[in-house]
Design a protein around this nucleic acid. Structure first.
Lengths: 221, 221
DNA sequence: CGAGGGTTGTCAGCAAACCGTCAGCCGGGT
DNA sequence: ACCCGGCTGACGGTTTGCTGACAACCCTCG
């Protein structure tokens, strides 16, 4: 689950980044609007955390450019003061959520989780597919009611596949979501990871669509 | 666009209702959690505005019940105090957004608009022609309900023909679609491919227009 | 500081699937 | 009958994905 963090205050960015990693997200951090615009336009993020006061290119302008270019990823806006007119402006510019500084790190994480979930069309924090239940708040996984221990990377893979259950997810997409941008392209790390998750959650749980990617079936509903 | 408003303060409900109507929404108003739960489960809403402090059945419980029952509509939570732990709890219970009282009516409307916009559905990813059903998300194909396995290239061919059902598609066009530009011109690869697909999906399914190309019939509708 | 356990990417070997090629066949239109 | 466009079965080189072993790395604990 890859997040773009746009924040020029290095200290704040560091603590947010740390919290994101601890919560199981991978993140890229940029400090100015120009670079944010470029990355948002070229990479594929599950969500963006966007500070409004930025050097070089203002946050709202970046957001409008993204939306103008058809980018759909959810955006959470951070700003120093909770001026309500600014909130409306931000939301109408295409933001999906708004958080005034100062904020509790827990709240930021909850909102990011909610955004990612919602963008994946999955409003509940507990996802269930084929006997596997994943609680995104507690970061726990059970299979047929039995707790299963997944390593962080395994958890991220299972989580992403479940959030996109019913859709084939390519290796490239997984690589983008699970690793930072400078990861070596032709590695079989994903295959190995899939193998490890299969061993824990059942070999049939992740299906292979040869030549296209992987798929987990959603529960009927 | 129908909105469910769950709010026990009659005065506030009236002014929110008025604002919603002015913004072009139709709304139903209920005052207690029991009735809210019932309506949310039986009617179909574009979004729900949910107050947390409710008589008879608490707002968070209502939300959890809805989500437990698989209801997907976006929910915006209202609550009297901006207690951060409550926000986290609400969002993790499956809410899509959160607004502390007191709030500006404009901000509420902006958020509701954003929620409705985001929840708007996508077109169906399933194509069907002559008993063959192709799911572009799962990349699966069934014939008369029976799953059929197609290789990547076969899948692409079937997909392209179905997307252009009712039209004759030439071999040249198929070559352009399925292969890189430098593909050898006088190869019978397409013919072989068509043959393989026919064996799996029925020999009549792809018709030959000698000298022109291939054709699959669209379903009448 | 070092041992030990857990995590995760790399690598090599393997099995299966994939897919273009080819040669020969078929069948309809002139 | 003849020809040309299309069909088909067989073949094998290549690609793809899976797996076990291994090593680097990062913890924690003694």
């Amino acid at each position: 689950m890859r997040i773009l963090l746009v924040e020029d205050d290095a200290r704040l960015a560091a603590s947010v980044g740390q919290a994101l990693e601890a919560a199981g997200f991978v993140h890229d951090w940029v400090e100015d609007g120009e670079r944010a615009w470029f990355l948002g336009d070229t990479e594929h993020y599950a969500a963006v955390i966007l500070d409004l006061g930025l050097p070089r290119l203002d946050g709202l302008s970046v957001l409008r450019r993204w939306r103008g270019a058809g980018q759909r990823f959810p955006v959470l806006i951070l700003t120093a003061r909770g001026e309500w007119s600014e909130r409306v402006e931000g939301i109408d510019a295409g933001a999906d959520d708004y958080l005034p500084k100062p904020f509790r790190m827990e709240e930021l994480l909850a909102r990011v989780r909610a955004l990612v979930r919602r963008a994946a069309g999955q409003p509940s924090p507990v996802i269930e597919c084929g006997g596997v239940r994943l609680d995104t708040c507690r970061m726990t996984v059970t299979r047929d009611g039995v707790p299963v221990h997944l390593s962080p990377q395994e958890y991220r893979l299972a989580c992403y596949l479940m959030q996109h259950a019913g859709r084939v997810v390519s290796q490239g997409e997984l690589t983008e979501q699970l690793y930072a941008q400078d990861f070596e392209r032709d590695s079989n790390a994903i295959e190995v990871l899939v193998g490890r998750v299969r061993r824990k959650l059942g070999s049939e749980w992740i299906q292979t669509r040869r030549g296209f990617g992987y798929l987990v079936e959603p529960d009927a509903d």
